[in-house]
């Protein structure tokens, strides 16, 4: 069972300094998670090790072997599956600097994008995590509609043409740099400007799917670690019943169940019962609908497979 990080561990993470105004828009963090802190997703982690960690860690060896390393990667998949955590863990495993640019916060601030990449150039080796690339650089005819007619997760703001250009320019300019690796996360690959998926830009893709049964079981074990469970609680059964729940939903479920237990708590401590979990399941519903899940499978199946290999 994966040991859960206590919240002091997370709190203690030191923020490296970045000047003034930009410090609120850019995040320069000591990576907090390693792959061991992320439950489930063994196969996906392997992809991250191959595509993200190897070029940063063993660039020399790759060069000797005459292999052109990947220049960047687009990480896509449903919200709440842990794309960000996986990228952060890659930075930790590679032992490099880690910079986060939150796309949704700079849809009209190209100077933040320029400043971020400037910082990256000064602090090599670095992994640049560009969040919400599809907000900043959407395809011209981007259609966010799912097959059931909803538009769940549609960005409320899209990047201005200036920002779009700035992102394109900056990624193109660092693509040949071996010690700068750009990992961009995005919600749907079919709404993204295709210019970014070219080999000379972000040449690789990783799909983080919704968790399978095994993943869900591992995630549930992770979030219920260290809290007393009543005898009637079967996480195996729970994992079976939580189809369409993603990592974030499962975390909320565990949190809500613990909250119910806390409200009931008496002298002998906090014990989570199946009743607490059932109650929590009533209010924590998966955000991913069956139609959306089907659409994700379809988009993944239709996408060319080559970019998913090393």
């Amino acid at each position: 069972m994966t040991k859960r990080m206590s919240y002091e561990d997370i709190e203690g993470s030191s923020k490296k300094s970045i000047e003034e105004y930009f410090e609120v828009y850019l995040d320069v963090l000591e990576p907090r998670f390693s792959f061991a802190d992320i439950a489930g997703y063994d196969e996906v982690k392997e992809r991250f090790r191959d595509i993200v960690v190897t070029p940063l860690k063993y660039g020399e060896a790759l060069k000797k072997a005459g292999i052109q390393p990947p220049t960047g990667v687009i990480v896509w998949g449903p919200l709440g599956t842990g794309r960000g955590h996986l990228i952060e863990a890659s930075a930790k495993e590679a032992g490099v600097n880690y910079l986060i640019i939150r796309g949704r916060e700079c849809t009209a601030q190209e100077e933040v994008i320029h400043r971020a990449f400037e910082w990256a150039r000064e602090h090599k080796p670095v992994l640049v995590h560009l969040m919400d690339l599809d907000w900043l650089a959407p395809r011209r005819d981007a259609n966010y509609e799912w097959s059931d007619g909803s538009t769940y997760g549609k960005p409320d703001k899209l990047g201005t043409p200036e920002v779009h250009r700035a992102v394109h320019e900056e990624i193109a300019s660092v693509a040949h740099e071996e010690e700068i690796f750009v990992a961009a996360s995005c919600y749907r690959i079919d709404v993204l400007d295709q210019a970014f998926t070219r080999t000379s830009m972000l040449g690789r893709k990783i799909y983080v799917p919704r968790p399978s049964y095994e993943d869900r079981l591992a995630i549930l074990k992770y979030y219920f670690y260290g809290v007393a469970l009543a005898e009637d609680v079967s996480l195996e059964k729970l994992a079976e019943e939580t189809e369409y729940y993603v990592g974030w939903d499962l975390e909320s479920l565990a949190r809500k169940a613990k909250l119910m237990a806390i409200q009931r708590a008496s002298g002998d401590g906090v014990i989570v019962t199946m009743e607490d979990i059932r109650y929590a399941m009533k209010s924590v519903k998966p955000w991913l609908t069956p139609a959306m899940a089907r659409d994700y499978d379809r988009i993944r199946a239709e996408d060319c497979v080559h970019k998913y290999n090393f």
Partner: peptide, 10 residues
């Protein structure tokens, strides 16, 4: 309605 609901959960 269109917003991601993760932020509303506990």
């Amino acid at each position: 309605k269109e917003e991601c609901k993760h932020r509303y959960m506990y």
